[in-house]
């Protein structure tokens, strides 16, 4: 009782917060990212050019935005497999709203995001109210959303959005592409939600010990569902960015995208068992995956090999995470 009051170092720096929130392997990923940058700059001169880097960031924007939502879901101990399909649905509906119902681009984008939110709400209710395992609930949505896209479009791409819609995915503000600004905005919002709001706080608690959350008076169902809604919102935004970049709603967009997104989140230090993960880590994870793919293209390495490489990186990232935690294990 006596000595503890005078312990040194009780003021926790940002580093401690970062470490406690599980972003350390995200930091490791950041290290890997920097090393990769340096190596690629040396071996492939075309890599370190403003054009290529902005191009890279724009390409990553869709996955990065979606990764922020998926990070929140994974922190609660859940998973969202439906983000790829939901993004496609959002993109198609958003473009249709503009092309066939004459909505202006801003409303079209919001419409697409609303579609994502709705899909997320269905996911959330299935998990939080019906009690389906997140894997099953979102696996179902993966199929349902894709099915709806195909029904709406007859499997044919939809065009006809006004030209100004391209700004979202292709526009620039000065030298900076707008998708990059969107990443920054989403990252800031996502970070604030996770670190400074009850929803974010409860996400960590739900992932760490849902029963403790319930006994502490946390509205478990509402907050769980909300996290899936947010994941849907970010998937919807990602879908709109993608639609803007290719200037159309593609019914096949995003097939398999959920795996890249989940990979990014996991490489970024989130734990699939819940309770750990950060927005910053997931963004780094997303960029690491993107840089590997981009760098591989610069070096003339084929897509098939890239897939192998990314799979190996997922193994290493998760192994490192477990190794680190085992080493610093609990004490009674």
């Amino acid at each position: 009782m006596s000595e503890t009051g005078t312990r040194r170092g009780e003021r926790a720096g940002p580093w401690t917060r970062l470490r406690n929130s599980g972003a350390v392997s995200g930091v490791a990923a950041a290290g890997a990212l920097i090393v990769l940058f340096v190596v690629l700059s040396v071996v492939a001169p075309s890599f370190l050019t403003a054009d290529n880097l902005f191009n890279l960031a724009s390409q990553t924007s869709v996955k990065a935005v979606m990764a922020v939502g998926v990070t929140m879901v994974i922190i609660t101990g859940g998973i969202d497999l439906s983000v790829g399909s939901v993004a496609a649905l959002s993109g198609v509906v958003g473009v249709l709203l503009m092309a066939e119902h004459g909505l202006n681009p801003l409303l079209g984008i919001l419409g697409g995001i609303a579609v994502g939110a709705t899909a997320g709400l269905v996911n959330g209710l299935l998990v939080a109210r019906v009690g389906l395992p997140p894997f099953i609930a979102t696996l179902g949505m993966l199929s349902v959303a894709r099915g709806v896209v195909l029904i709406l479009t007859g499997a044919v791409a939809v065009f006809g959005a006004p030209d100004s819609f391209r700004l979202l995915g292709q526009g620039v503000l000065g030298p900076v592409p707008i998708p990059v600004l969107v990443i920054v905005l989403v990252a800031v919002i996502g970070h604030l939600v996770l670190t400074r709001t009850r929803l974010g706080r409860y996400a960590y608690v739900l992932g760490s010990n849902p029963e403790a959350a319930r006994l502490s008076g946390v509205a478990v169902a509402r907050h769980t569902a909300s996290v899936y809604v947010l994941s849907g919102v970010f998937a919807g935004l990602g879908g709109m960015i993608a639609a803007s970049r290719i200037n159309s709603g593609q019914p096949n967009f995003g097939e398999g995208l959920e795996l890249d997104v989940i990979a990014a989140v996991v490489i970024g230090g989130a734990s699939l068992f819940g309770g750990r993960g950060t927005v910053l880590g997931s963004l780094i994870g997303a960029f690491l995956v993107a840089v590997i793919r981009n760098g591989a293209v610069q070096l003339g390495i084929g897509t098939f090999y890239q897939n192998v490489l990314i799979g190996v990186i997922i193994w290493v990232a998760v192994w490192w995470d477990g190794y680190r935690r085992g080493k610093f294990g609990a004490r009674g």
């Binding site: 009850r198 960590y204 608690v205 959350a213 946390v218 309770g275």
Partner: peptide, 29 residues
Amino acid sequence: KGDGLALQLGVDVNITLGAPPTRGGLIDL
């Protein structure tokens, strides 16, 4: 351990669990 604590999270988070202090809608760290 079963239903009292979120073991991976901080002492502070566990003490305020369920009702963290807020200011202007954000958690007042």
